[in-house]
Design a protein around this nucleic acid. Structure first.
Length: 291
DNA sequence: ACCGCACCCTGAGCGC
DNA sequence: TGCGCTCAGGGTGCGG
């Protein structure tokens, strides 16, 4: 799933196709917990609204509308936000693609997982939100209202500081990795970039957060910023489902040091990368480089 | 207050 | 081929 870099790449590329356009139609799948705002209300609220901006908060996207209301989007694990026609069949897994009828092989058509489709007054391409696992979310926020999902987010990971990590970690017994992934501490760090920045900082993911030194907190913050910026530059990581709004794969996966490299040699010392579970998440590290 | 865990959902990949 | 199992980049909510 998309972490901060993938969400930011999505934001930058989709903003051009969204901002300044007036929504004329809203198509959805049936009600499910994907919709924090029920489909019927969503249609009512969005129709006729012009999109005036698209912000990112951690892993959330927030579309601003001309009446002061906002549309909150989260891509979850398998969410894909893209422009009709441009994303093509690479949205689908190779096996799903193989089952398509020949006439459907040319371009992607909305399927059962395409939960939200926005059409516009200008009759240009629609914007679609597809999410196989439905861990993604859509919520309409009334003008002037707040939402606790975004209110409780910590410092954006692109602006991570050693001080934030230092203060949040004192007295904590959780694993250092869990602290990095706590969205109320730093917003935007997920499983891949947590593993990668822990490696670059020489810190074992299982280390108790409270035992981190001030120097390690500084290193972790610097490496989180570095890894996130570099990933945004390369278009994010395309490891399983992520694809950008115009259908381009990212390339950051080629620069991974540890994530999903179990058994492969560490790029620094050659020791095989280990995989363990930390906080119910697959966790990769070099047993020699990370203390 | 903290922390670990179950759970939400669908599909891919693997061993048998 | 098919079955059953494990795993997946997310977050929430519950109980101890």
């Amino acid at each position: 799933m998309p972490e901060l870099p993938e969400v930011e790449v999505t934001r930058r590329r989709i903003a051009r196709k969204l901002v300044g356009r007036t929504i004329s139609g809203v198509h959805t799948t049936r009600e499910s917990y994907f919709f924090l705002t029920p489909p019927a209300e969503l249609k009512r609220r969005l129709k006729g609204r012009e999109v005036t901006g698209l912000k990112r908060l951690g892993k959330y996207l927030l579309a601003e509308l001309d009446d002061g209301s906002r549309l909150l989007l989260h891509l979850g694990m398998t969410g894909q936000l893209f422009v009709q026609g441009s994303a093509s069949l690479r949205l689908l897994s190779s096996t799903a693609r193989a089952t398509l009828k020949p006439e459907d092989q040319k371009s992607f058509k909305p399927d059962a997982h395409t939960h939200l489709r926005l059409s516009f007054k200008d009759d240009g391409p629609e914007v679609w939100f597809r999410d196989v696992r439905k861990f993604g979310k859509v919520k309409w926020i009334a003008p002037g209202d707040s939402d606790e999902r975004i209110d409780k987010l910590g410092v954006d990971a692109l602006k991570a500081t050693g001080n934030v990590l230092w203060e949040a970690s004192r007295g904590k017994r959780v694993a250092a990795k869990s602290l990095l992934m706590d969205q109320s501490v730093l917003a935007g760090v997920g499983n891949i970039y947590a593993d990668e920045s822990l490696f670059l900082s020489g810190v074992r993911p299982t280390r108790k957060a409270g035992k981190l030194t001030r120097k390690e907190c500084d290193a972790l913050a610097a490496n989180i910023r570095k890894v996130m910026k570099r990933s945004i530059e390369t278009g994010g990581s395309s490891i399983s489902d992520y694809i950008s709004p115009d259908g381009e794969d990212g390339a950051y996966q080629d620069e991974r040091m540890v994530y999903a490299r179990k058994g492969e040699p560490c790029r620094v010392c050659g020791t095989p990368i280990k995989k363990i579970t930390v906080g119910q998440r697959g966790t990769h590290y070099c047993p020699r480089c990370q203390k």
